[in-house]
Design a protein around this nucleic acid. Structure first.
Lengths: 202, 202
DNA sequence: GTGACACTAGACCGCGCGGTCAAGACTGGT
DNA sequence: ACCAGTCTTGACCGCGCGGTCTAGTGTCAC
């Protein structure tokens, strides 16, 4: 698409994306019709196709936006932190907080993975994120702070814990993000740190 | 539905479920039409609606089947094992092996979670699985083998690692299930075991 | 005030979908 | 041999979808 947009136009576009994201997350992509989206905003169908060339494009745009936003949040969170392990834990905390603040994003991702035409775009963003995280893991291993195992496996173990706990405890059960973050960090560190650990007594 | 089925009928029904599961996983639920399914099997449309009252019912049936099969596999894997920690690790290994043997199931689950009308059925099965696993975690905590934290958090941490590693390394990268299982178990145990652990040296 | 263009409305279109149905073929029990 | 009931065929239906298009209206630069 890419049109010249006045401030008013930008506002409309954002409205459409925000509302559609909510509906997609709630009801699913296919079950949410373009008609439903424009009706929900009380506008005509022409508005939709002025800003997006198709429903598919809208979805991809929402996905891209969310991935960029998460990445920006993570970068800000670890900015200025030197210790690689702290960078990792801060990243985890930031991700979980972001998850709590953008609840519908999870469903969108899950859906995108199930359809051939959305999977590539999704995967691309996730690979970028995984590479970011893996760099810190590798740094931590090099510094002797994390046990010397395949960084890819460690990284994805961390990502797995983080996303799953986000879904179950933040998304579904509504627990506060910081509590879940504490638990996630504890789990990850005790599985990852090479330093000694006190046994919890028998 | 529930019809009286002759052996021939049961065979057809299985064919339909197997083929549909493959197409759903490959292309998505909505993008796979009933017409496509029956054409793929070279039969008429009436066949489909003889065995299933709707496309939706078919999907739920596939989901239920898979969940039952996984659960059966897990039960068999831990049968006769006493030590709760070993039960957990055996469960992890069995799950990952099952994942490798039933690659398309993952996509189905991911999709089911994104649509209001499938989510309940999915969640129900997952809660059963989580409760199963949690019992062993609680046993392990009681035995002093696992550190004394919220069993739900520990359990879901384990499930998160397991499913995520399955998706990335088995599903996407095609690594052998037993290798991934070793890594998953190592990650989980070092994050969970209360017993002493040797530092990996600095 | 006027022209240029960003923006909006909503009737309309064709397609392909999920689902139906009437007619008949196959199969096994008796 | 026959019948009851399982199984199969494929033309058909109506609906609702994504997407189009025309006739506008709002807005701002000059």
């Amino acid at each position: 698409m890419a049109r010249r947009l006045t401030p008013r136009g930008k506002e409309r576009r954002s409205q459409l994306m925000a509302f559609a994201a909510e509906r997609f997350a709630e009801n699913g992509y296919h079950t949410t019709s373009v008609a439903e989206i424009v009706e929900g905003l009380g506008v005509g169908k022409g508005v939709f196709y002025w800003y997006f060339s198709s429903k598919e494009e809208l979805f991809l745009e929402i996905l891209k936006d969310a991935q960029q936003d998460l990445r920006r949040t993570q970068r800000q969170a670890i900015d200025g932190i030197e210790d690689p392990v702290e960078r990792i834990t801060s990243g985890i905390r930031a991700s979980l907080q972001w998850s709590a603040d953008h609840r519908h994003y999870h469903s969108l991702v899950q859906f995108a993975a199930t359809e051939e035409r959305f999977a590539p775009a999704l995967r691309k963003g996730q690979e970028v994120a995984a590479r970011d995280a893996m760099r810190h893991v590798s740094d931590a291993i090099a510094a002797g702070a994390v046990r010397d195992a395949d960084p890819a496996l460690i990284t994805h173990g961390i990502l797995g814990i983080t996303t799953h706990l986000a879904r179950v405890f933040i998304h579904d059960l509504g627990k506060p993000a910081d509590e879940v973050a504490d638990a996630a960090v504890a789990f990850v560190l005790d599985g990852v740190l090479a330093a000694d650990r006190q046994p919890t007594a028998a």
